[in-house]
């Protein structure tokens, strides 16, 4: 425990800015993964235990595309689209078979795919740590805000995540497709009786969730190292986020992710060995006081 370091940081604006931005990017990446998880749960009523694999694939797709084309935009696009297609195929071919079955079957199917996907990545890209490297466009000197260091790439990352949150929130609340999705979450039988193809909606929502996780992976690729199994810790953290925020709530996912991000970045100063423990502790406190999470009542 190093409370002096934490207190020292809280009183220095430079450190405060640095830690807050690093907390924000952890939080924003988590948000992108968690919002997909929460969306899939809200509509399909299954927890995609293999969601971390989509994050991992997003990162690897982006790395390969970047190495082939040298274009950052194409890398992001292929990370997101590749995982969207993967999500659609995965949902139609496998997950759709276990909707009626009990939770055990759903977990097992996902568990099987966690094992398979990790090995597929190991086969294609090798077991060692890989890195994509920062694209040339972002290799510029960092910004200094109140003495704190903020790399420009972090700003892009935060901006993209916020834009996604806004588009998703407005899209679900205002557009026709958003209405159909909310209706399908509420009563799929009635929706399909009205002549709407719910299978398509389920597939689409799963693809969207996979795409968001893949986008998070692609965005994380320049700043994190890539390894088979990298998705699992992200999955656990984003699950904690959805538990804190409330399953099925987009706003909850955003708030939960930011809280976890800040806990991680400031916790690493004060309690270097117990950073992860702080996260779990926070989750336990939320669960005990509000078992449905902070925003648990809403359904996406």
């Amino acid at each position: 425990m190093d409370l002096d370091a934490l207190a020292g940081c809280l009183t220095s604006p430079a450190c405060l800015v640095t830690q807050t931005t690093s907390g924000l990017i952890i939080g924003m990446l988590l948000f992108l993964v968690a919002v997909g998880l929460t969306l899939i749960f809200g509509v399909l009523k299954v927890v995609n235990f293999s969601h971390g694999a989509f994050y991992m694939f997003g990162a690897y797709f982006a790395m390969t595309a970047y190495q082939l084309t040298d274009s950052f935009a194409l890398a992001m696009l292929s990370g997101a689209l590749g995982t969207a297609i993967l999500g659609l195929v995965f949902e139609r071919a496998f997950m759709s078979r276990v909707y009626g079955a009990d939770v055990l079957m759903q977990l097992l199917v996902c568990y099987a795919f966690v094992l398979i996907f990790d090995d597929v990545v190991r086969m294609i890209w090798g077991p060692e740590f890989r890195s994509m490297g920062m694209p040339a466009a972002f290799q510029v000197p960092p910004l200094f805000i109140a003495g704190g260091v903020v790399p420009p790439y972090y700003l892009l990352l935060i901006g993209v995540a916020l834009a996604v949150a806004l588009v998703l929130g407005l899209g679900l609340a205002r557009t026709r497709i958003g209405k159909v999705i909310r209706a399908a979450a509420h009563n799929p039988g009635m929706v399909s009786a009205l002549g709407i193809n719910t299978g398509l909606i389920y597939g689409g929502v799963f693809a969207l969730g996979g795409m968001l996780a893949g986008l998070a992976g692609a965005l994380a690729a320049p700043v994190r190292s890539l390894t088979p199994g990298m998705g699992f810790s992200v999955l656990i953290e984003s699950f904690i986020v959805t538990v804190i925020g409330g399953m099925g709530s987009i706003l909850g996912a955003l708030i939960g992710a930011l809280l976890i991000g800040l806990i991680r970045s400031f916790g690493s100063l004060g309690f270097p060995l117990f950073t992860e423990g702080l996260m779990y502790l926070f989750m336990v406190i939320v669960l005990v006081s509000r078992p449905t999470g902070l925003f648990g009542k809403e359904v996406a």
């Binding site: 079957m105 097992l108 199917v109 568990y111 099987a112």
Partner: peptide, 19 residues
């Protein structure tokens, strides 16, 4: 060395196929 794939397929066989 890729025993995850094989185990995964066996699990799928039991979970989706046999139940």
């Amino acid at each position: 060395e890729y025993h995850g794939i094989v185990l995964g397929i066996v699990i799928l066989f039991f979970a989706i196929g046999l139940r």
